[in-house]
Amino acid sequence: MPQAELTVARPMPEEPGILAFLELCDSFYPADAVDASIGQQRLWYDALCAQFDRPLPNGMITQDAAIGTIPTRRYRPASVRTDVKLLYLHGGGYVVGSLSSHHAICAELSEFAGAELVSVDYRLAPEHVWPAQTDDAFAVLKALLGTGEKVVLIGDSAGANLAAGLALRTRDEALSGMVGQVLIYPGLGGDLVSGSYEEMANAPGLTTTDTAYYRAILKAPADEPVAHPLLARSFAGLPPSYITVAHFDPLRDDGRSYAGRLAAAGVEVWFREEPQMVHAWLRARHMSDGAREGFRALCIAVSRFAGTL
């Protein structure tokens, strides 16, 4: 008798708010988006992000300007309570995303922490492959550190990968001033075949196949720790870190593993796993109770690193 084909159930959260978020996302950004052209992916992503945009907090000022040759957007809340700067690197698989895509997220982080925030518009793949992205972000970071600024480095997804790589570069070049790194559902170079990459291979929001696609399009060397921070020979000397992951996310165990290695190396680290969240839950912070709680915890961590809490 022929063997029946095995079907793998799609892991799904149960929280109503996050399910409503996923339904809204699916209406703008199809599950098979990576099969479309780059231009189409960006159009879909921009339309999706626009659905979650919000007005700036009262009194906040933003300014678009280049740091060197890199476009950035600076957020200044009405009440600035620290000289520490926040540096934000957006997600989007290195393929999509911009200063506009994470605009409201950056504004709310800046407002809560009472700190100026600089968002980086690094170059995207496939037009610009690795190391263009890390070089752009590092140029902005070095410019801030070079003027004596203290910096909290923040990134989500691909941006968290860039942030972790920048922390390694900063340490290895003996640059001072980075007072914390905050990594939100980071991809850090896991093996794509075990742990959460297997368990959550078909998770909503991001699949393991999607992750492989984004890695392939970036064309980073497979043995490069700046691109794959879990490959670092040493984790000592890295800044205090806050790492948050989503349970329903193939990238989950990258964050878990990285947190463990930081702790083993004596680095101060906080780790939080959101039990009902999916990849990109940051956008659901005004729809989902779990995302709201996760975002508040994130804002508190940023504020502590910035010295305002």
Score class of each variant (00 low, 15 high):
V226H: 13
Q40R: 15
I154S: 10
R73A: 09
G237V: 01
R215T: 06
C299G: 10
A65R: 13
W270H: 13
R285N: 08
V269F: 07
Y213E: 00
G180V: 12
D46F: 09
F138W: 13
A291I: 06
Y258K: 02
K219R: 14
V278W: 07
E293H: 13
F305E: 00
E5F: 11
L22G: 08
A47I: 02
L145V: 01
R261M: 07
A9R: 12
P204S: 10
A143K: 02
A33I: 14
L24R: 15
I217Y: 04
L145T: 01
S288V: 06
V245R: 01
F235Q: 02
A284N: 03
A36C: 11
A164K: 09
A139T: 11
R171G: 09
L238R: 06
H103P: 06
D64V: 10
D53Q: 15
A4V: 03
V80Y: 11
T207K: 14
A143P: 02
A132W: 01
A203S: 13
Y213G: 05
V80F: 13
V179C: 15
S257D: 14
C25P: 00
P131H: 12
V152E: 06
D83V: 01
Q51K: 15
P239S: 14
G159H: 06
N58H: 14
K219C: 12
L144I: 03
R54P: 00
R292N: 08
S79L: 12
P240D: 05
P275S: 12
A107R: 11
D253E: 11
G165E: 02
D135N: 12
A137K: 03
G180D: 02
I18R: 03
A265I: 00
E273F: 04
S234N: 05
I243L: 09
D121I: 04
A66S: 13
A4E: 13
T211D: 08
D156F: 01
A20S: 14
A160E: 05
P11L: 11
G146C: 00
G195R: 13
L153E: 12
S101W: 07
R215D: 13
K85Y: 10
G148L: 04
C106W: 01
I300Y: 09
P57G: 11
A297P: 05
A4Y: 03
I243M: 10
L183T: 08
Y45I: 00
S119A: 15
Y75K: 07
T134V: 15
D26Q: 14
S119E: 05
E149A: 15
V34H: 14
A164R: 06
Y88S: 04
R296H: 14
I184D: 04
G187I: 09
K85C: 10
P57L: 09
F271Q: 01
L48S: 05
V34G: 04
